[in-house]
Structure formats: C-alpha cells, structure tokens
C-alpha cells in the first residue's frame, strides 16, 4: 500500500465527489479552486459548518464551510420550498449533504485501497464566527465558488497517516 498514492486519491476523489453531489443537488456546475495546504491549524467559518470525522488507514475529519445563501439554495432546490432563513431543516439537510459527499468519496477510496475508512455521524453548526482547530494534523483547503457564495472543503489528516 502506497499511503501517498492513497492520500492523493482521497483528495481527488473528495473534490470530484463534491462536484458531482453538488451538481445532483442543484444542477449547477462547480469549479474547484486550487488545493492549498494550510500553515495554521485552524480555520474560521461564517455560515454553516458540517464536520464528518473518520478513522481507518487515514484518520481525521472533513469540514464543509458553507455560506448561508449556498445552504438555502441547495435546500430550496431539492425540496422545492422557498425558505429564506436558516432553520433546523436546513441544518439537517446540510448534515445529509456532508454525509453524502464523504460517504460517496470514502466508498470509492475503500473499494480501491481496502483502506477501511469509516465515518462518524456528521455534526452541523451555524454561527457568524466559528473557529475549528485541530492538532497534529495536516490541513488542506479547497474553495468552490457558486453563484450564491462559496463552499470550503477542508480536510484534516492525522500527521502520521500521510
């Protein structure tokens, strides 16, 4: 098993899955920005944050930082409703969105690498300033621009796993 190869596959799979799942939800195409490795161990999110932690040959967490208007757009597009503010239903739907992105991506990686990555349930947060901090991890960030705002796909991998 080549862990570096698996890591690259994980990242590309997460990005591709993210684009696919978003497209299925909204029928909009997403253009991912470049992958950057963060120097700091924290990321600040305003809007909605979904965390999906995982264990296995790679362990860490996926964090989606979703602008409020993007969340509303995804929710309204799927349900046909016209919700204008963040409510519990929107938060639940973003949890499910995070679950689908990570679940589908991990399925691809597990099937290819027998990596035994397993997901914990998603947790959802909303607030104007949330700082998420992880220790002994490497953090990677990709920003996706949508017509409604941005989504950040932020992944933290435990250091020794890479």
């Amino acid at each position: 098993m080549n862990d570096q190869r698996m890591f690259k596959k994980v990242m590309t799979t997460f990005v591709q899955t993210f684009v696919d799942v978003y497209k299925q939800f909204t029928d909009e195409d997403l253009q991912p920005g470049g992958l950057e490795k963060l120097e700091e161990n924290s990321i600040s999110i305003a809007g909605i944050a979904v965390i999906v932690p995982f264990t296995g040959k790679l362990s860490g967490r996926v964090l989606l930082g979703i602008d409020k208007d993007v969340a509303l757009s995804i929710y309204n597009s799927i349900t046909g409703e016209s919700v204008e503010d963040i409510c519990d239903d929107v938060l639940f739907s973003m949890g499910e969105f995070g679950n689908m992105v990570t679940g589908n991506a991990v399925t691809v990686v597990n099937n290819e690498f027998k990596s035994g990555i397993r997901l914990a349930p998603p947790s959802v947060f909303s607030g104007d300033e949330m700082n998420f901090v992880n220790f002994k991890v490497n953090i990677y960030n990709i920003v996706f621009k949508t017509p409604h705002g941005v989504i950040r796909l932020n992944t933290a991998f435990k250091e020794e796993a890479e």
Partner: peptide, 8 residues
C-alpha cells in the same frame, strides 16, 4: 477520531 476543537 482525532478531536476537533470549536471556539466561537
């Protein structure tokens, strides 16, 4: 899983 800290 490794802990994630949230401050806000």
């Amino acid at each position: 899983t490794p802990p994630t800290m949230l401050v806000g």
